[in-house]
Simulated assay, not measured.
Amino acid sequence: MSICLCARQAIVIAAVCTVAIAVSGTAQGAPRITELTSGVTPLLQAVHAASSTVVWASGHGGIVLRTVDGGTTWERRVTPAGDSLEFRDVHALGADTAWILSAGNGAKSRIYRTTDGGTTWALQFLNPDTAAFYDCLSFGSRAEGVAFGDASHGRTNLLRTDDGGRRWRLLAPSTVPAPLAKEGAFAASGLCVGHGDAKTVYVATGAPGARLFRSRDAGRTWSVENTPLTRGIAAGLTGLSVVDGTRGLVVAADINRLRTDTSRAVVGLTTDGGRTWDVRARPPLPGALAGVAWVPAAGREVAVAAGYGGAFFTLDEARSWTTITDRVTTGVSASGRTAWVVGANGRIWRLDW
């Protein structure tokens, strides 16, 4: 579901301008927060930290960025199709190998892969269904990955690969949950699909049911759980983050109110893979939440959330939140003790615990 708001590559190096954020160090356990200048101005919608130094980001206008020095410099990786695609998701294994997913109806939904750091890209999937719209992807290993799209023709659209994306297969209806009417996910942050470990993978669905799909066999077969979070015609889950296979945070939103959403049941915690839930506090500013990421090396209770009303961190498993910025943010990712947030006007924030 949309949220509004191979060729040789030219490389542009963007210098970083760091800005200290006032919240840094104001409370015990609070991170050091640095705002970075990416060198681009379109909305950055997704980010994936392959390590504490290698990070990829993607967004509107065909934008894909990469840093290999922890954000000191960002390289623009010019992608196929120029600026005509919106890359709503990116998943990287390191400095060389990454996948990007463009979202949109029909042929606008595509998956590309690079194995040379974004110098060249191979088209791996071109959506043949004009009624389908792909939202997110995730890899549990170098070979096995999953991509999810909005339901079409009465079927759930889940793609799976076991060869690094060379072949993407649409799973048979008998192996996936039957869709609710007009069920899909929100292509908000690239976090509607996520792995808890190499074999355990989840899908956070949006409208109308706010359901959680779960696979224990790397995406071959699936079950479904209900959640107590907000749901409706344009409301549901928007992003998830799972560690240890079963312990997860999910966020939800009413996307008809991107900057004004005040729905209460928008943050949920599960410790058993989605069977039971504890609804936690929503962040302090209005706005639709888009994504969330645990920062497990900073402590089991530390996470960061991004949304159209701002970005926030928690030190107590989402019982309370501290504001990072009130700017529009969408993507969030973490590795080690470092988290990354991206958003409107090419902005990037780095948080270090």
Results as ranks from 00 to 15, higher is better:
C4K: 14
L5F: 14
A15D: 15
C17A: 15
V23N: 04
G25Y: 08
Q28T: 13
G39Q: 12
L43T: 08
A46S: 15
A49L: 12
T53R: 15
S58M: 08
H60D: 14
G71N: 09
D89G: 05
D96V: 05
T97C: 03
A98Q: 06
W99M: 07
S102M: 00
Y112G: 02
D116Y: 05
T120K: 03
W121F: 15
A122G: 04
L126Q: 15
P128S: 12
L137E: 07
L137K: 03
A143C: 04
A143Y: 09
T156W: 02
R160E: 07
R166S: 14
L171H: 01
P177T: 02
A178I: 01
F186P: 03
G194P: 00
D197L: 11
T200K: 04
T200N: 06
A204I: 08
F213A: 09
R216W: 06
R220V: 14
T221P: 00
V224N: 02
P228S: 08
G236F: 02
G239N: 01
G239W: 03
L240W: 13
D244A: 14
D244R: 13
V250I: 15
A253H: 04
R257S: 12
L258M: 06
R264N: 10
V267W: 09
T270W: 01
G273L: 07
G273F: 07
R275Y: 12
V279S: 04
R280I: 10
A281C: 11
R282M: 09
P284R: 01
L285R: 13
E301R: 15
V304M: 07
V304P: 06
A305K: 00
A311F: 07
F312I: 05
D316N: 15
A318R: 00
I324Q: 00
T325I: 10
V332I: 10
G336V: 10
T338F: 11
G346R: 05
I348K: 01
R350N: 04
